[in-house]
């Protein structure tokens, strides 16, 4: 059986909020290392990969591999019934029909309990190869969100060019063009504002802004976001969570010109 207790319901609320517009039905794969989720969006352009390590829960117990097929719309409805600060416990039997969610308020004696019916989801699982990326950019997640939002007003796509000079986000649209240039930057007082660019070779790739704007819904999960790029491979956008847990998005580049 599965029993996983989260100190704050907020974490799961934010994760589900960040991915629910991209994927609708998905399996939460539970085993002794934690709870993982991998799903492609309907158009097979983007891939979501979430890992909530067992260390992110206290306690965490899962004796056997259990796949919880959940509709994220249903999960959102139930998670809205939790206060951000509530303690959240997920429970399921070994061959479950439902997943049970218990929300406990630390301040009051209120305990609420919900069951969500599970679905059989036949999902193809993709193997994501270990990649040595040519460029890795770590930057404030709010800055990345702003860039994507600003440029999406002008164009459907953005080119991300990374060189010794820094990183340049460029777009061309019907009304004109826009570009934002960032260089490595260290702020000793506010390290969450740092921009770090780790480059082994120059990279230039073009991506759909619609998807990037969607990924940025995860900005509330982490002050910083990591962008990993190599020519002709999908972009990795990573929001690191505590205890080595993470929310990652992969986006296939645009091809040709």
């Amino acid at each position: 059986m599965l029993e996983a207790r989260l100190e704050q319901a907020n974490l799961l609320k934010k994760v589900v909020d960040a991915i629910k517009d991209l994927v609708q039905d998905c399996n939460f794969d539970c085993n002794d290392s934690g709870i993982a989720l991998q799903a492609m969006d309907n158009s097979h352009v983007a891939l979501v990969s979430m890992m909530l390590k067992s260390e992110s829960f206290s306690p965490f117990r899962c004796d056997r591999n259990i796949a919880l097929g959940i509709n994220l719309g249903s999960l959102t409805k139930v998670l809205r019934c939790a206060q951000n600060e509530d303690i959240l416990t997920l429970k399921a039997e070994d061959a479950p029909d439902v997943v049970n969610l218990v929300f406990e308020s630390a301040e009051t004696d209120r305990i609420s309990e919900y069951d969500i019916k599970l679905m059989d989801i036949d999902q193809e699982h993709l193997g994501i190869p270990e990649t040595e990326y040519a460029a890795t950019i770590t930057m404030p997640s709010a800055e990345f969100q702003r860039i994507c939002r600003d440029l999406s007003a002008l164009s459907e796509s953005v080119s991300i060019e990374c060189s010794k000079e820094g990183v340049k986000f460029n777009c061309q649209g019907d009304i004109g063009s826009g570009s934002i240039h960032l260089r490595s930057h260290t702020n000793v007082d506010k390290p969450e504002l740092n921009v770090e660019i780790d480059l082994t070779e120059p990279v230039s790739l073009t991506f759909s802004l619609k998807y990037l704007v969607n990924f940025c819904k995860a900005s509330g999960l982490s002050n910083q976001v990591k962008l990993c790029l190599s020519n002709e491979v999908p972009l990795l956008v990573e929001y690191a969570l505590s205890n080595n847990s993470y929310l990652r998005f992969y986006l296939a580049p645009k091809i040709g010109d």
Partner: peptide
């Protein structure tokens, strides 16, 4: 005109 690649063409089925 640019085409959009599919993520499944980069990552193999596990």
């Amino acid at each position: 005109k640019q085409g959009q690649g599919s993520i499944a063409s980069f990552f193999k089925k596990a």
